[in-house]
Design a protein around this nucleic acid. Structure first.
Lengths: 207, 207
DNA sequence: ACGATGTTGGTACAGCTGTATCATCAACGG
DNA sequence: CCGTTGATGATACAGCTGTACCAACATCGT
């Protein structure tokens, strides 16, 4: 079997296995042996591609961040077309909610990493800021665009709204995760919030 | 030494030690030996008062929830007096932000527990819902009160705003925790949000 | 005064963790 | 065609974890 192997591919597969295991049993409970089993390789292999556990966890975080970027920006291109800004933004924020199993694990693990970052200096230097910042920029731009099209209520500050909306979305996401409310209820709160930001009667506005 | 000892008091002290250790090194890294050392007792003692680690963690969560209730409702009684609803609510939400070290550890650990609850069924049944629900009720009541005093912009739904504000506060809290923004910046976003809820010129409104 | 009881200390144990070591095997370069 | 090298497997190891066990000791009821 031992031919030359694509390291990057291998590492990605193992990192993916890490994410799967962490989603199932919690990031704190993940062990290298279990990751190896999930990836269908030997423990030694995991050691081979990521020398240490810390590096493995780091790789998992990066993979997660990639997903975040993809998932978020995957909904933006559609905005360039003729859809109403209101609809685009709502779709964006809805996608950030833990509805399907995929976004559930994303929320779960991202929060896990964030918690670890509070005490682990190495993790604290990781891209915990970049991705959210980028999201804020994107959403802010969309809102500014809507304001320029005179679709927002007067006195609205796009930047502050963007930050607030994303923070709210994150908070709602956590509450859904712990079972305090359903994803639908959270989406409803989001919808209400947007109704209060957009001018009544703006395209895409509900009711 | 062995006289009759107040179990409740002892348990509280040890739980407090758990919280201190967890705040310093992360909830995932906490061990019974370290808790014992922090509390200044022997490992055996920790075992004696909490037979198992799981029960110790549970006790820590309950202690944390108590703090939450105290901290939150400690600001409410003052509301019964003559202070403007706007000021009371802002103070409330500000208090929920990780400003001082105390609220930092609260945010940190509460989030840690929430993350654990996703995979641990025993934790999932704990009061993760009750306290936040109570907070939503309280804040909702305050907003309703403000609306009845005609201090809110027309069309505002107190309940939805309460849920949204608390979710936003939680999300902002996390962002402060991971160092994405300062507590002051978060408070500023909160202030802006309240300005958009309260009628311009309502008592306590900024600018 | 004395035994029962609540409280405490010391310590051992089994299991799991991440990591290191040694050996093997396939493939390619010369 | 052979040795160097990349890739993999098996296994050993030291450390830490939560938990269990055993002994001691002060206090209280009688």
């Amino acid at each position: 079997m031992p031919k030359r192997v694509d390291h990057g591919e291998r590492r990605a597969a193992i990192a993916e296995a890490l994410i799967k295991v962490a989603a199932r049993r919690g990031l704190h409970a993940v062990g290298m042996r279990e990751v190896a089993a999930e990836a269908g390789v030997s423990l030694r292999l995991v050691q081979y591609y990521f020398e240490t556990k810390e590096k493995l966890l780091l790789a998992g975080l990066h993979r997660l961040a990639e997903r975040f970027g993809e998932r978020f920006s995957a909904h933006v291109p559609a905005a360039e077309e003729d859809r109403a800004p209101r609809a685009v933004i709502e779709a964006l924020l809805r996608a950030a909610l833990p509805t399907d199993e995929d976004s559930r694990t994303f929320h779960h693990l991202y929060t896990s990493y964030a918690v670890l970052a509070v005490t682990d200096p190495e993790l604290a230097r990781q891209p915990f800021i970049k991705s959210p910042d980028a999201a804020e920029d994107t959403l802010g731009a969309l809102l500014r665009q809507a304001r320029d099209a005179d679709q927002l209520r007067p006195g609205t500050d796009p930047r502050s709204e963007a930050v607030g909306l994303l923070a709210m979305s994150a908070g709602l996401g956590t509450s859904v995760l712990v079972g305090q409310r359903t994803a639908e209820a959270a989406a409803e709160v989001l919808r209400y919030r947007l109704d209060r930001i957009f001018r009544p009667g703006a395209p895409g506005t509900s009711a």
